[in-house]
Amino acid sequence: MSTNPVLEAARPAARAVPVRRAFQLREWLEREAVFSWLMLTPPLLFLLAFLGYPFCYGVYLSFVRRPVAQPATFVGLGNFVNLWSDSIFWQAVWNTFRFTGAATVLKLVGGLGMALVMHQNFRMKGVTRALLLLPFIVPTVLSTVAWQWILDPGMGMFNRILMYVGLVTQGPSWLGNPTLALVSVILVNTWRGLPFFGITILAGLQTIPTELMETATIDGAGSWQRFRYVTLPLLMPVIFIVTTFSIIFTFFDFQLVYVLTGGGPANATHLMATYAYSISMGGGQMGLGSAAALAMVPMLGLVLVAMSSYVRKA
């Protein structure tokens, strides 16, 4: 340990501090709790001011009836009762779970594949990786505009290819058919999020020691067995982190659906985020809209708790 160059660098300076008077203050500062709280206070104050206040205000709003530009009246759980009996809300909940579930599974499987492919040695690795990240980099509002064309029934590339190959004489309506519309928004979300999974899992792959693989090979494990019994277990923590991230971002995804379908046709792609938005902005019901937004928090929390306990067992 003492050969560590960083430590060597730190040493002479450390020896030069034995001033007696400052000692007590220093001792106090050196206590773990004191040091920790000194570090923690500024960011916590920042978060409290900029996140805590709006969050508490949002929670407060969900318990009042509060039209835009009008005073609030307390309604207790009234907003939640309202939502409970709102069929569009439940459709949005159901859509959100299907959207998040399908997109996350697709991104996970695809991302794992992407990572395994990119883990191999080939020329121009760096450039390839950066280029494959493009869908993640381009602002969603703009890439979604491109998807409006790609999914166009007559001009879109999907249907052009289908027609060219001769599979159909007239392509399907990607955003008009309720089922296909949900498939389409899942597809676009997958397209945008896949590189994030790919690059993150790739990083995980790279930290797996090669010796482990070699030992497994010597023991006679085939490539599938190596993947199943060596690679995958070691990747689990990474997969957990990246999936958690992605579930949160997908669950709250708003822009993509808003620009592509607006939640239509006939609410087939309405998500909780878009519905909450349309209640508070379109309907001007700040209270009810906040309640709908707040309803996402425990649902998402439940999903995450279930996931983490599952991972711990496995």
């Binding site: 064309w149 166009d152 029934p153 007559g154 001009m155 309506s173 990607w174 955003l175 607006g262 046709p265």
Partner: peptide, 20 residues
């Protein structure tokens, strides 16, 4: 056209100008 049941406002401009 089948697609129009899901159209937002720019969609019919696009479909019209592309002769669909």
């Amino acid at each position: 056209i089948d697609d129009c049941v899901g159209w937002l406002d720019p969609a019919n401009n696009k479909a019209f100008l592309t002769s669909q």
